[in-house]
Design a protein around this nucleic acid. Structure first.
Lengths: 139, 139
DNA sequence: AAAAAAGATTTGATTGTCAAACTAATTTAT
DNA sequence: ATAAATTAGTTTGACAATCAAATCTTTTTT
């Protein structure tokens, strides 16, 4: 394939750029990285049990227990016990957690805006199109 | 902006997809995450001193000292002292380190290929173009 | 009812990280 | 030229992040 090496290179730059942007945003908040990630997942997908949360975070449930403990202690989230299955804990963001999520999401919107500012309208549509296809098929 | 929310969403999916792919590839090797990251940087940019390596990894030099210690112990990299400045350590990949880098890079190429397989030639060129612009201006 | 499975937590260990103190070498300013 | 400041890197001490395996409780299956 013609552009394979070049594309790989640009993709790596892109991902690394995003990663370091993300950690610097998190580090400027009073949240730890693991806590911020959990809040992001909960904010995006809403209430869910420990197992799903662990899966979406890509870590074990043991790790997630610790993270949620800390989020509860800091009042960003709380456990609700499920009425259907008494083994299950549903994790839900508190007011404070929602607010933190919204704030973080604003940063994401700003970064997106900044990235898109160097593209024309047509280029933006093309990029969106490409990302949708790749996300649907690859991830 | 018209597509801001949608684009942000797709970008987050894209980054998360890449992140979990990356960690699963690393976890299937005998390298730890921090070690793999260091090898990636050294493989891509070649010999460099501790400070630059720390910078590219986005961590402190103290953290990098520990990482390089482990890479040396496992024979993936070694420190060379600079002839110009005796404070400086230049970190360089060993044969084994180079091989590990090549192997990891192959995985990246494969992922890129898989992602691009859903796009037409024109779309690939457009995507490459957009990424180049964004990387140059934003990151 | 007994056995197996599932959701979550706990435990013990390793890995990843930082800030601050420190060592050694180089540069700058007097 | 020599004292002061700076720079590269390491060490230390403390948390934060994570996993695998053992455990507890509650379903589900047999």
């Amino acid at each position: 394939m013609k552009y394979l090496a070049e594309m790989t290179n640009e993709l790596l730059l892109f991902f690394n750029g995003f990663s370091s942007w993300e950690s610097s945003v998190i580090r400027s908040s009073d949240l730890k990285v693991s806590e911020a990630h959990a809040i992001e997942v909960l904010g995006q997908h809403g209430k869910m049990n420990m197992k799903s949360l662990a899966q979406k975070l890509g870590v074990t449930t043991g790790t997630t227990t610790v993270t949620v403990d800390r989020l509860e202690k800091k009042d960003y989230a709380r456990r609700e016990s499920s009425s259907e299955d008494r083994r299950v804990n549903l994790i839900v963001l508190t007011e404070k957690g929602m607010k933190a999520f919204e704030e973080h999401h604003q940063y994401h919107l700003q970064l997106t805006e900044q990235m898109l500012s160097v593209l024309s309208d047509t280029e933006i549509e093309q990029l969106l199109n490409a990302l949708k296809k790749i996300n649907a098929e690859t991830f």
